[in-house]
Nucleic acid binder design. Structure first.
Lengths: 186, 186
DNA sequence: GTCTATAGTGCGATAGAC
DNA sequence: GTCTATCGCACTATAGAC
């Protein structure tokens, strides 16, 4: 595999498990099998690495949303798959969505990373609002109010539920928190 | 003021704003006006400090819940006041609930701190479940399902909404995410 | 209870050989 | 593109004077 890609993979896993301040170039070097000085050839500073990480993460999200849209027939199915995606990202309670992991330590981040975080959330919120709007139209999601508020509440539940499940390393905590929203899907 | 209390106050503000790995004894020393070596007299290790921090935080929560219970007449009023409490804790988008701030960097925490975090959430969940149960009984909260699930979803929304509002330093993001739950209160 | 001084470690980053 | 070697800095923690 490409060294750059291997570095991004290792950094993503580490950031989601330990937070942005919770891993070092030394950790990545060990994981990838090169010396830490060599990492600077690919990413001159740690901030360069984190920016690249978030850019890739947002691009992956867009691809993932397109895929969900392509294979789903109803809005309810789309929402259900998105919830499953967040559940899977937990990796049994060991790992957060990169977005949630970085948001918590906001003050360690450069303006570029904060902007990229905003872009990620915006993409997700627009998609969710569309799902809730379509869910009212096709009748597969119940009790939809203002789609934008439903989207914001849904994203908050997903990230809060991840935080909670991770704190106790227990997927049940995630399932309990999202049970209500799943109950609204036909 | 007591030096120990001043240290805990400074540490709590710092942890909620920058995360557990985002402040040092040097930062606290500067804030409180003593030398960093002197902090070790009050809290031998940083972990001792964080444990004391979480213990105080949980005790403050219990006192706060008692106060809300004392001044509220309906379950709906209690829930409304709890949401307001989380909104206030954001300090305009600069600061998270200590619990959310620590949960994100779980792997930097000692087992004692993780246990204390669990105790905090447990206290909050029991209280919220009771509020939702009473809200069905007195008719001041709508659409209550299993009170435990409502409580878990509510806590997840509150913490997720904080994370989101903090990332954008914008209280509107919090308000949008909790609008739905406020809409269920009569 | 607070101080100065310092030990010991780990960090991000750089220089220069290969 | 990767290496060895090293710089300068910040961190937690300790020793011992006052």
């Amino acid at each position: 595999m490409d060294t750059k890609t291997a570095l991004l993979d290792a950094a993503e896993n580490a950031a989601r498990a330990f937070g942005i301040d919770g891993f070092s170039y030394a950790d990545l070097a060990k994981k990838v099998g090169i010396r830490k000085a060599s990492i600077h050839h690919h990413f001159p500073t740690k901030d360069d690495l984190v920016i690249a990480l978030m850019r890739r993460y947002t691009n992956d999200l867009i691809a993932s949303l397109d895929k969900i849209d392509a294979v789903s027939e109803t809005a309810g199915q789309r929402l259900r798959q998105q919830i499953a995606r967040y559940r899977l990202a937990l990796q049994g309670g060991q790992s957060l969505c990169l977005c949630a992991a970085l948001s918590a330590s906001r003050d360690s981040l450069s303006p570029e990373v904060v902007a990229e975080l905003g872009s990620y959330r915006k993409t997700m919120l627009v998609w969710l609002a569309d799902v809730f709007a379509k869910g009212t139209a096709d009748g597969t999601i119940l009790n939809v109010g203002k789609p934008e508020n439903d989207a914001a509440a849904c994203l908050a539940v997903l990230e809060g539920a991840q935080l909670y499940a991770r704190a106790e390393e227990n997927l049940n905590r995630f399932d309990e928190a999202v049970a209500q929203i799943i109950g609204r899907i036909l």
